[in-house]
Design a protein around this nucleic acid. Sequence first.
DNA 1: ATGGGGGTTCCAGCCACAGGAAGGTCAAGG
DNA 2: CCTTGACCTTCCTGTGGCTGGAACCCCCAT
Lengths: 129, 129
Amino acid sequence: MNIGDVANRTGLPAKTIRYYEEINLIKPLRDANGYRRFREQDIHKLNFLGRARALGFTIEDCRTLLALYEDESRASADVKRIAREHLGQIDAKISDLRAMRDTLGHLIDACAGDDRPDCPILRDLGGKT
Amino acid sequence: MNIGDVANRTGLPAKTIRYYEEINLIKPLRDANGYRRFREQDIHKLNFLGRARALGFTIEDCRTLLALYEDESRASADVKRIAREHLGQIDAKISDLRAMRDTLGHLIDACAGDDRPDCPILRDLGGKT
DNA sequence: ATGGGGGTTCCAGCCACAGGAAGGTCAAGG
DNA sequence: CCTTGACCTTCCTGTGGCTGGAACCCCCAT
């Protein structure tokens, strides 16, 4: 399979697949003409990576998770620890975003949104008077 | 005021302040020795920028908001539109993150986290079998 | 004179790719 | 046989919003 087919099958852009090879996440074979040739195991790894990325894991986490996935003697505790740390970061981000949304929401509600210059949003950003 | 004092007063790193000058958000004066000299209006702008950034506005949004802030004949509708668009992006991000958190949370709960290799998290990433 | 704590510029790096140029390869159709 | 067009290749640049560091200058106190 060439990269285009793999892109179709995995949903990952060809650019991304090339990038994953460059950073040694996958190692597809090469045909005589220089084209990458992907085996089923490569595609399987790419799907793994796609799902892990969709859950927001960093590339380095993905690398570790992939290694654990292929290590039959792994301890699930290692996987769980990585996942929990990541969950913590997600929660932190969510609460940051919620704080922003709350503040911003109040300001927006307070703003007339007409053609006059008076604006609580700018007043707040400018230091509340 | 030199950049160090301004950094202390605004809470912004000196590096960031220099960067904001580089991208023309502020234009501090220069002393004979080449040091930046900040006026109160520069500090006011920096505080504005700090608060806008803390609400998650992009630099380009900040630039626009600052221009509106200084435009006495602005229409608050313009400000509100920018804020609402930004709010939309925040909400989108929050819901992405919540989806991630939910999936990840379930997987973590299902994982024993001991020294055995069996792991629902990896099973899911690997394609659920 | 020297030491230390400011300041300056410029360059590299971060993350995870995306866009695009310049060129090689392959199968189908005329 | 030649062309066309869809692939593929590598390489370089850019993204956002800074951050770190090198190499150097400036000023004040000892």
